[in-house]
Structures are given as structure tokens and as C-alpha cells.
Amino acid sequence: MAVVAVLCALAVLLLGGCGTRVAGATNGTNGTNGATPTGPVPWTTMEPSAVTAAQLAADQRTLTLTARVPHGKHPCVRALKAALAAAEQNTFWVQITYSSPSGDRRSGCTGEATASTRIVLPEPLGDQKLIVDHDTQFTTDGAKLPALRLCGELGCHPPATSCTVSSYEQAMIAADAPEHSYRDAEHCDGKWLVIDFSWRTGPVCGDTTATPSGCASRLGDRVFFRAEPAGWKTITSSSAGGCTAVRRAEPEFPKALCATLPPLATSLHPSYPPSSTDK
């Protein structure tokens, strides 16, 4: 609860420095009814769009954090800094902020570049967690120091690739499956995996006036995976039956897992990479 309170308080401070959106502003301008704004370009407090790397110095306390920030022909970033938001529950929570005029397109800060800032932790990082900007997590476990290891969506220690439900869920995330998708079938041997999944589409599910019902209409796709140390890695996707598509992308994929696959009726999911058999 203490961590939540600290982060909420920090969010209030950040939002307080972000200015007020003018009612009726459109097309990314700060004017009314889409008009081009006039006057000085305002600088507001922001967070990076992404935190991409962290390095730990020899003292085990000094961190260099790299993030993506606005970029343009003129200065786009001031006061880039990292601050410790909380240190508890075996976790350091760090927040990166800066001031930028990029909220107003007149500033010309429409691109992005990387920039770094440093912070000294109150004690050595050791095996404690490092979370930057709410949800970007780094760890020394398995890292090639001085660089820390950037953890994925499933945390720093995702489920091992296997023929289990938790492992299939990791594969669905790797495949960027649409929200609320559900698995129809899995074919797995521990090293290779095929998942057929589908998702509802059409009108809102539960709308009894819609024809057809959103609960009845569905689309599906089939994705092939290879096991890697970080988890399941997508090879390709295909709505065609058999092994042609996947073995074109990965000749070692075992025929035992794909030879009897029937073709799917429909597929809107992008291929990894696109397969000519899906055209």
C-alpha cells in the first residue's frame, strides 16, 4: 500500500505540471476548434515513451538509465532526471521525468531520440528488483553486467517453455493475439508448438438486436513457435493446412506436429513473416 501511495502522489505532481487541455482542441493543436495556437510554446513535465536500458556501475549503486525522449531541430528536453519513488518489498521504484515543449507541434519536437540520466541508489542493488516508470523492470539475474537485463511482459522469470497452460499463455502474448482470444487447440512437444486460437468479432456481444450476434461471429488463426531461453518465439502464422508454410520458414519444424493440421476457415492475424500460402 505504501508503494501505491507514493506512486499516486508522484502522479499527482506530474499531472499538475502537464498543463490543461483547451476544450475543443483538435488535430494535436492547443487552439480552439483546431485553430493554430499563438503565444509562447509551453514546456510541460513528461515521462519517457520507453525506458530501453539500465547499466550498473562498479559501486553497485549508481545506475545509468537510457530512455526515449522527444527530439527535433531545437532543444526538446530539459531537466531530465531519475528520482527514487520508493524502496521496499525488495524493490527499487524509480521515476524518470523531464520538461519538454513536444506537446505543442510548433516546437518541432516530433521525433524521438535516446538520452541517459543517472541515479544513485541508497544501497547496492544486489538481487533486488528495479522498476522504472511503473512497469519497466530490470534485473541483475542472468544479466551481462554492467548492463542489466530488461525483463519482459511476464516478468524477469517467465514460465519455462513447456506443454503447460502457463506456457501457452506466454506464447499467446508472444503472438500478439487479440484481446480476449481463447485457445482452440495446441500441438506441442516441448521444443515446438502450434496454437490455434480465435476471438469474437462483429457487434458487441450481448446486443440481442445485432445480426449476426457478436457472440456467434468469430475469427481464428494458427501460429507456430520455437522454444528459446526467453520463452516461445513465433516462427510464422498460416491459415493453410499441413506443413508447407511453417517448414518454408523453419525447415526443422517436425512434421508430426503439422502434417495433419486442417486449413482454417478465416484468418486476419498478420503472418510472422507473411506466408504466400495465406494469400
Rank of each mutant, 00 (worst) to 15 (best):
K255P: 01
S116Y: 04
R248I: 09
V41L: 12
N27Q: 14
N90E: 11
V22T: 13
V12T: 09
P37M: 11
L125Y: 07
P178N: 08
C243F: 12
H187S: 09
M46W: 08
V246Q: 03
T139P: 01
D104W: 03
N33P: 00
S102F: 05
A2N: 12
D184N: 13
K73Q: 15
A83K: 12
S107K: 12
A83G: 02
A79F: 14
T117F: 06
R21Y: 07
K255E: 09
A210N: 09
G214A: 13
V165M: 04
A2T: 14
R218I: 13
A256F: 04
S267W: 00
L15V: 14
D207T: 08
V41Q: 12
A85Q: 07
A86S: 12
V165F: 04
S276K: 15
L145Q: 09
T161L: 02
P263K: 01
Q137E: 15
A54P: 03
A25K: 07
T208C: 09
G142Y: 06
Y168V: 05
S239I: 11
S276E: 15
S166I: 05
S198G: 15
V69I: 15
V41I: 15
R218W: 15
E250N: 11
C163Y: 07
R78A: 13
K144A: 15
C243R: 03
T38A: 15
R200S: 13
T66C: 07
R68F: 05
V165C: 01
R200P: 00
G103Q: 07
V246H: 02
K233V: 00
L84T: 07
F197I: 02
P273L: 12
E228F: 02
I119H: 00
G111W: 06
L148A: 11
T91C: 02
N30W: 10
C163I: 02
P124V: 08
L125G: 02
G242W: 05
V223G: 01
A25L: 06
I131D: 00
A54Y: 01
K73W: 14
I119Q: 03
G202W: 06
M46C: 10
A113G: 04
P146A: 09
E250H: 10
D184Y: 08
G31A: 03
L13G: 10
S49C: 04
A54G: 06
S99R: 13
A53C: 07
R200A: 13
A147R: 11
V94F: 06
L130C: 12
P159S: 02
F253T: 02
H74N: 15
V223C: 05
T277N: 03
W232G: 02
L219C: 00
A67D: 07
T161Q: 08
I195K: 05
A82K: 04
Y272C: 09
L145Y: 08
L63T: 02
E169W: 10
V223K: 03
A23Y: 10
S100L: 14
L154I: 01
L154S: 06
T244R: 10
A11S: 13
D221P: 00
P101N: 15
A11Y: 01
V246C: 04
V132T: 04
L148R: 00
V246N: 01
A227G: 04
T266K: 08
R105T: 07
K144F: 10
W93S: 05
D176G: 06
C156R: 05
G17R: 00
